[in-house]
Structures are given as C-alpha cells and as structure tokens.
C-alpha cells in the first residue's frame, strides 16, 4: 500500500496552489464532526447543527470535485448547480426541523431526544 498522497496533503506548505485532496480532507473532518454532533448531542438543536455540518461537507465535496476534475469545453457548471439544489434542500430541511422542534417542545415540554422515546419496545 502506498501512501504517496499523504505527501500531497503536506504540499500545501511546499507548493503553490491548493489541491483536491485538501478540500476532501477538510470535508471528511467536517463530516465526522457532524456525525459526532448528531450522535452525542441530547439536544434536538444540536442534532440539527450536526446535520448542517454534514451537508456542508457534502456541498464542499461537490464543489471541489467540480473545480479540480478536468471537463469538456461545453461543460455546464454542474458543481455550483448541485450546490444550489442542496442548499435549497437544506433550507427546506431546517425549516421543517424547526417546525418539528417547536411542536415537540409544545407537546412534551422538552427537546431532549432521549425523552421522546414513546416508540420504545
């Protein structure tokens, strides 16, 4: 197994210009952090924050791949378009999430997800 790409991560400090790997690496970290957020937060809003992080890392991936991978001459800006649509969905998602959150709060007086376990067993 060769880890020659590890060197390209270091190249940020040695060579001019950024490369695809840098963005992917950051996006991976963001994704993992978002995941941890989702899993460890007891607060529903915290889970929402985690989801935002994960979606952001996804958009970042789209943009990075679009930017760095070679394309034909008449290529459409597919990366930005994907980003736009994802952002639209994110807006929707957070709106619905907020609605559900408030509803949960009205109903059970809390937004602790561990206590919203009526479907247990």
């Amino acid at each position: 197994m060769e880890f020659n790409k590890l060197s390209s991560l270091v190249s940020l400090f040695t060579e001019p210009g950024t490369q695809l790997e840098h963005y992917l690496f950051i996006s991976g970290i963001l994704f993992t952090l978002g995941l941890i957020n989702c899993l460890l937060r007891n607060n529903a809003v915290g889970i929402l924050i985690g989801i935002e992080l994960i979606l952001n890392s996804a958009i970042l991936n789209f943009m990075a791949f679009w930017h760095f991978l070679p394309q034909g001459s008449d290529a459409s800006p597919s990366g930005p378009l994907a980003a736009i649509f994802i952002i639209v969905l994110v807006a929707c998602e957070s709106a619905v999430a907020l609605a559900m959150l408030l509803n949960l709060n009205f109903k059970s007086g809390t937004i602790e997800v561990d206590r919203a376990n009526k479907m247990k067993n």
């Binding site: 809003v45 929402l48 943009m63 930017h67 957070s94 999430a97 007086g109």
Partner: peptide, 30 residues
C-alpha cells in the same frame, strides 16, 4: 474554488437563514 455566486448564496442562506433559524430554535425552546 472560483464560484463567487455560491459563496454569496452560502452566506445568505446558511449564515443569514439557517443559522438564524437554529438560534431561534434554541431561543424558542425549553
């Protein structure tokens, strides 16, 4: 990454929209 439009959208929707929504959510709930 050479796409200013998305950057502006990101600021407007995320920072200006979603984040505010989240903070509202925190403020409105117990």
């Amino acid at each position: 990454l050479n796409s200013d439009f998305i950057a502006v959208t990101q600021v407007m929707v995320y920072v200006g929209g979603v984040l505010i929504l989240i903070i509202f959510g925190i403020l409105l709930t117990n």
